[in-house]
Design a protein around this nucleic acid. Structure first.
Lengths: 335, 335
DNA sequence: GTAAGGACTGCAATCCTTTCCAGTGATGCG
DNA sequence: CGCATCACTGGAAAGGATTGCAGTCCTTAC
């Protein structure tokens, strides 16, 4: 059905080899020939068969992307960045969703590894040891976490937390809660350490509240603990959790930000739209996606001789309406 | 590097043909031979090269999925359903995001069509004519819309709207607003016609409010128009819009549901978590994804001889806390 | 004028798997 | 006992593109 390189060659009166060269390494053929071949190819609607090409070049032109949860807007944005960069480089991307189930990652990885040139692993949860085993066949780049000396793209979580905490301190808050994300999450660890370092330096009373799933429900569940802790401000593991906090605080009639300041993290689209709109640490999700693809492709170019590369993107506090000057803690009996 | 079928054949002392058969059509080889081949293959970690297989079978084992916006939780859920079904059938899926830009669809389609066995097109916006051209090379299944006699999977939008409207009528509402989605959206048209039919039959005063983007912001923008329309209840094109409405109504101090009932559509995860939680028409997103893959795969099996197939999935009203008995419209001076 | 070199182009091998066809040995039946 | 049949296996072609090698033709320099 579809025209092959032979059809083009015949129609253009040249050999298959010339057609191949005219289309992929134009410098090697005479301009006149090249033009003729290109014209015929266009007219016939010829598109090289990727499978055949992959068979000989050993490259598929496909990338793989493994994320924990596509329904999480954070990853949705990352995916968009990855898509855009991949398309620009004429690659397609397989996406697999592990449904927040760390075990599934290894399976997916194996399944995908044969059909892609390289893989991007967005795996905040899997333990280091598990990661160590993967990627013997394929080039793997980590995003949003680091592990050993594997190449990776991360964002400066610790610095984002510093900005958030300093912002709250400047507003007069002394006792500040942090609603932690999953225990095994790499970025949660980063954020915690960033916070405690800054807290120590600034003499802040930092209360870590449990580990919660990184979703809206997590925030809902954490809210009462935050209130009971006596903190006047809270930093959430991410925006979804922060929105959950907001929701529960609203239901309990605790005004934000007057009685409680709330800071999120990630700056997903919805956080600008909540009421009141959420102060949050913006992380460059799309850029991170793009950067990861860039790193992956450059590694594929270079072969294995490119050493390990890390790339860290900056974060930026965005002050909106959920943070305000500290007042009396909302404990019972106070006025 | 990676072991090929030759390596397995040599190690097992049989021909490549036998290895191939032992692994893909086991009935054709003697049990003893089969066992030996399987053992060797496992030991060597042999995995057939998909490109080579695809070259001869003409099938890649890949599916393509084109969605307007991955960041929209509705599509995220659909994607998850598609993923799951595809994986179960040992297929991988390419995902492409058009960024709500109808023009990009055709490009993506062409780009993807060569590398997949079939495509799922989630294209609520593109006009029929544009759709007519696509899919000459590849099998295309539409989801969430119909067009000509192309195979498709849809949900019963009209019936969902009927349920929503009847619910509101039963609560005593007479004047009801509908915040419409994009003008060119197929499902918006379906929903509108479902509503007007039911409204006519029930003697309801139905007010259509503009066309708005299917996002949170759309709802925010529409809210004031809804209030001004004098309606006591509003049905939104989808949940994101409904949440936007809720947000703006809350900001204006209009209590929901006492002064205004709100119904959404889609039942995305967050709608159960808003305050108050959103009454909405649930559509089976994951099932739709699964069903579409099923349809696509069955078409690929059957070849072109399978006629056009439509499959429609039911919708279901979920009553939560944003709908209540009608009271006086919230116009100035009432009470 | 001829040799050397360069610019293009073609032939043919190769990538890995599947599958058609033929061949082998054993079995069943007449 | 011989022939047809069957179950199983191997040889080899095919699928579409890339690429090393070799060949042709033309230009340039001596």
């Amino acid at each position: 059905m579809a025209p092959t390189i032979r059809d083009v060659a015949r129609a253009a009166g040249v050999s298959q080899a010339t057609v191949s060269r005219a289309l992929s390494t134009p410098d090697l053929v005479r301009p006149g020939t090249r033009a003729r071949v290109e014209a015929v190819a266009r007219e016939l609607g010829y598109r090289p068969n990727r499978a055949a090409r992959g068979l000989i070049t050993g490259r598929t032109g496909n990338l793989g992307l493994i994320v924990p949860d596509l329904a999480n807007p954070f990853f949705a944005s990352v995916v968009k960045g990855v898509q855009a960069a991949a398309r620009a480089a004429d690659h397609s991307v397989f996406i697999a969703d592990t449904d927040e189930e760390a075990g599934a990652e290894a399976d997916l990885l194996r399944a995908l590894s044969k059909q892609v040139d390289g893989l991007i692993l967005c795996s905040p949860r899997a333990p280091d040891e598990e990661l160590a085993g993967v990627g013997s066949d394929t080039t793997v780049v980590l995003m949003n976490r680091m592990s050993g000396d594997r190449p990776s793209v991360t964002v400066d979580n610790a610095d984002g937390m510093r900005q958030a905490l300093e912002h709250l301190v400047a507003l007069g808050h002394h006792r500040i809660a942090f609603v932690a994300g999953p225990r095994t999450s790499w970025s949660n660890t980063q954020r915690e350490t960033g916070l405690s370092r800054t807290a120590e330096a600034g003499g802040v009373d930092l209360v870590r509240i449990g580990h919660f799933p990184p979703q809206f429900e997590g925030g809902v569940a954490a809210a009462d603990l935050v209130v009971a802790s006596g903190a006047t401000a809270v930093i959430a593991y991410n925006d979804l959790v922060a929105l959950g906090l907001l929701s529960r605080l609203g239901a309990r009639g605790i005004p934000v930000p007057s009685a409680m300041s709330v800071v999120g993290c990630d700056d997903i689209g919805m956080s600008a739209m909540s009421h009141p709109s959420l102060t949050t640490v913006s992380v460059p999700k799309r850029s991170a996606g793009r950067a990861t693809v860039g790193l992956l492709l450059s590694m594929l170019e270079a072969g294995a001789d490119a050493g390990p590369v890390h790339r860290e993107l900056p974060t930026q506090l965005i002050v909106r309406d959920t943070t305000a000057v500290a007042t009396t803690p909302p404990t019972k009996g106070s006025t």
